[in-house]
Amino acid sequence: MMRRLSDIYCIFRIHLARLRAESGPFLLAAIVFPLGMYFFANGVVRQDPNEFIPNYIKVHFVSASLVFSLSLTAISWFGYLLLENRFTGRLKLFAVLPVASSSYILGVMVFALGQGVVGSFSLLLAARLLGVDFTVNSFESVFLLIIVVLLAIFSLAGLSVVLAHRVRSFAAGSLMTDALGGGLVLLAPIYYPAETLPVAFRWVSKALPTTYIFQAINKILTGDLVIGTELTVLCGMAAVTLFIGFWQLSWREA
């Protein structure tokens, strides 16, 4: 057990060095672009530049931008990193070690969780500095928010793990992670009402983790801590993606 924990920690450390060296792109994906989306949504919703926007709408956009941040970091950025590991031969270095493939997945997931938590709470801090009033003021709300962020990362980063090990080329994988990172946010009714979507897309949006991540976060930020349904759905999605990720990654080629 200690050996496995040590392996997971080392794999986390190896990837953490990437964040240390490339903090600029991470900040862009985790904070700057989502803040940009927040300003964009606020701008679009106004009929004229001086119009007052109620706080609950601002909280709605902060929640949506948090989902955007999680999606960009857990799919676009993290997925790209996994693709690099696979297609530049770095994965071979682990494959020839006496390390379980599940330890590799857990190590990179811990890294994804770390960056997701840092990104989310930095974005919330930025929103607070911008004057958005949300209610994360009790131990219970902070705890639930952390749980939602963790489940969000597991379900989104799990998709990255699956994608990065199924695609046939780096170019195809890179395109897919970029498209998914943005697409999962735009196809889910998080910046706009679900009713504006065509019926078929409404059904599609019900299958997207981003829809439930948004609902859970928005409820917590508005003081509604009854998020059992969202947590259940996210647990299911995280379990499925992680199961597929663990199942398909084998160090030994057939």
Partner: peptide, 8 residues
């Protein structure tokens, strides 16, 4: 054809 972790 193994790669190394360039940021380490």
């Amino acid at each position: 054809e193994a790669g190394v972790f360039e940021t380490l």
